[in-house]
Every structure is written in structure tokens, then in C-alpha cells.
Write a protein that binds this DNA or RNA. Sequence first.
RNA 1: GGAGAGGUGCGUGAGCGGUUGAAACGAUCCGCCUCGAAAGCGGACAUACCUUAACGGGUAUCGUGGGUUCAAAUCCCACCCUCUCCGCCA
Length: 430
Amino acid sequence: MLDLNFVRDNLPLVEEKLRQRGMNPSEVLKDFQAIDSERRHAITQMETLKARRNQASDEIARLKKNKEDASAHIQATKDLREQIQELEKKSADADARLREILTSLPNLPHDGVPVGKSEADNVEVRRWGSEPAFDFKPKPHWELGEHLGVLDLERAAKLTGARFAVYWALGARLERALANFMLDLHTREHGYTEVLPPFMVNSDSMYGTGQLPKFAQDLFRVPHGEKDLWLIPTAEVPVTNLYRDEVLDAAKLPVCLTAYTPCFRSEAGSYGKDVRGIIRQHQFQKVELVKFSRPEASYDELEKLTHNAETVLQRLGLHYRVMTLCTADIGFSSAKTYDIEVWLPGQNVFREISSCSNFEAFQARRANIRYRPEGKSKTEFVHTLNGSGLAVGRTWVAVVENYQQADGSVLIPDALQPYMGTDRITPRSL
RNA sequence: GGAGAGGUGCGUGAGCGGUUGAAACGAUCCGCCUCGAAAGCGGACAUACCUUAACGGGUAUCGUGGGUUCAAAUCCCACCCUCUCCGCCA
């Protein structure tokens, strides 16, 4: 969420940044100024009357103490009551409408973010490794997975439906090996603390990181008594919300956390997309990196976090490129995002395998996550960042496709062999 | 699921329906004292919003939301959370 005062004082800038995102400012900011002044007007009036009422109440107390007659004052306050209630309703109403506007506004892109109209305008920052050479036509992972007997989409469809997967044998172990490898790397070498959060959260948490109120259709909702719970679409949600409504110790910043969790996404509106294989699933597992940073350090931390994610691919010997997302392609809550795209020879494309973002104070303001700068009495919002480190399912795909052999077996990269207990996946029957 | 206890500021912990935004103690910060420190003494110490050029003034907030009342931390109702005991259970 953007700061109300900031929006009010920098309306032209906000409009320009919204335009860069491909939005129509006059539409989303419609009536902003009118509602804002209406709200302040109502508050001022209401508080004036309340002050008068409080004054009268004090007077009543004083009179009663002295056993004097206070009935005139009591009647006066009774009369005030109705007016106050009316104004209260008016200001609450304006407040709600203003809040609706404010919560619907996306974060403003950082100044360094390339202005663009679509994902075609994303800018490549760097590239690592090179495409592996094959003296045969590399297969897509769904063919390899079936051939090896490690990936079973048919039975998953029977159990649950489309966009779910069952992994068997070394396929299942590969998933587990990748997760353990990633967590060990980030905790032992990159200084992250591992957390294991709940996989369902309440609405407040979804609101804190920006999934609600706008993106409910992307989530799985679980009715629970009067209230709803939600399956997490990413560990970002529970991990960032760990510190909701808290004041962090400045000396401990940046706080760096990592979590391995399943992620659940309804994928509404992507029906025709990526229907083959396990690129786009309703459930997938991901190792997430989350940071809470001082504002002045957050862009350095974004670079570090992105490199931490890249290190996973480097250790696995997987070719990738890093893209800076343009203003039209960055997520709702993000001020700047790097996507890491891994090379998939079976499909002859780069596919997103990690998305690393700096949300600045956007989430912190919604979730009320603050810290107290040294020597200052006032708290400030931290900056929150996160990135996949990495999406395990897509890493599984990358390993299988990049390390496939002519006979259909898959070699295991050196870094994973201790976790796999083997150097190769060979066919078995499902 | 059943029975009970409780939720107050950074912490502990008071709080007859009306000078309580909230005692006291502790923590922290600033002074004094000291060669320096400790102790002691004095002082400061919540947040948000409205208003003001500023000083300041005002309003709200004692788990959350309603209600009673001229007036609610204090009374009533609902809900949430924590703890203890019983039952059930991976």
C-alpha cells in the first residue's frame, strides 16, 4: 500500500508511475482528491463536536461532585450525540472508500526499472553458462518423466485433477534432494535462517503481502467456521507476515529467512497455457528467500538475494539468464523485480525459475512491520524483499531436461549426488 | 468437544462509570553527582489521525467488534487469542 500523505502530495508522480504500468490513472485515482478532502472535512467537524462533548462531560462531572444541577449540560450532550454519530458515519464511509482506492493501487516502479509495454520489453542483465550440446533431439521432461517411470500425471489426474503430479521413486527423491540442497546452501553459506511456516494463513496475512483484496481469484480458499483460511501461493506470505505488527531490532537487520513449502495457485485464467508437463501446477514446492532490510540497504540486498538464487543454478550447472522486468510486467506489490530464467532444452526456451523482488515499504506498510533506527525515537517501515531460491518443480524439470542422455536416462549433477545417493536416473516401470 | 482462568504501555503490574493516556516498579534515554563508574537524585519516555507556517491544540486507542450511558479500561453482548484440567486424536 502506498502512503496516503505521499499520494496526496505527489499526485502527478503517482499518476506517471501508474501510466508506466499500463494503467489509467484517471480511472484508478478517480475522485481521490474529492474523497480525501471529504474525509478530512468530516473528521475535523466530528472532532470539534467530540471536543465540545468531552468538555461538557467534564463539566457534568465537576457539577455532580459538588452536588449541583447538571441537567442542562446533560441535555446539551445528548443533542450532540446524534450529530456526532452522523459525522462518524460520514468519515468512516469516506475512509473506507479512500482505503479501497489506496489498496487497489500497485507499488510504484523504482526509477531504475525499464519502462515498457509488455514482457517483450524486459531487459536481459546477464547470462551464465551455455546451452548444453546434444547429438540427439532433446526431449521435454514429460516424455522423459514417463519413460523413466518417475513422473505420473495420469494418476495425479485421477487423484485430484489436472495440474497435479505424482512423483515416484528417484523422481520423488530428486524433488527432496533439490529442496535439501537449496536449504543447505542458503542456511550454511548464505546466512539465511530456515523456517517452516503454516501452509494455510488467514485473510489478514494475505492482505499484508498484497494478495488480498485484489487477487482472491488466484488463491485456494478454505472455509473455516465463520472465517476463511487460504492455502499459501508462496512462502512469501507466511514468512513475511511473521513480523506483522512488530517492531524489529535495528541491530538485527537485515533479517534473512528461507522456507521450503508447497505453493497452491488456482491458475484461473491460464487454461490454455503450459498444459503439458509440470511447468504450471496447482501445487508445487518452492524454497523461498525473504529479507527484511533497512530502506537504504534494500537495493543492495536485492542484488545479493538474486545472486543467492543464481548460485543454486550455478552449482547445478544449469544455463540461465537474468531479466529486469519492465514497468508493465512487474508484480502488483513490487518496485523492482529480476526474473531468473533457466534454459530448458527439451522445449528450447528460457523459463522463469525465480522471481526476486524489492517491495520497498509497500508490504511493510500494509503489514505494519517496522524498526527503530538507531538514535531515533520514531519507528520506520522496513523494506521487504523476496525471491524463489528456487522453484523446486521447475528445477526438477531443468535437471531432467538438461542432463538427459541419448538412452533416455538422466545424469545427476555432482552437487546433488550426495543427496541422491546415485549419479543417474534410469528407467523403471510405473 | 466439555469445564475453568485470563487478555492493560517496551516488560512486570495497579486500576470506586467521571482530572486515568492510564498508578507503581523495572527497562531505556538525558542531566546532576563522580577522576571514571555503580549507587543515589532530577527529568524524559506510546501510536495513529485531524488541525496549525510554527509553538501548540484536538480526537481516538487498555484483545476485536457491537451495546448501555451525558460520560466506559471500568457495566452488558458476541467473537478472537492464551493458559489449566477432562475427552478425543497424528
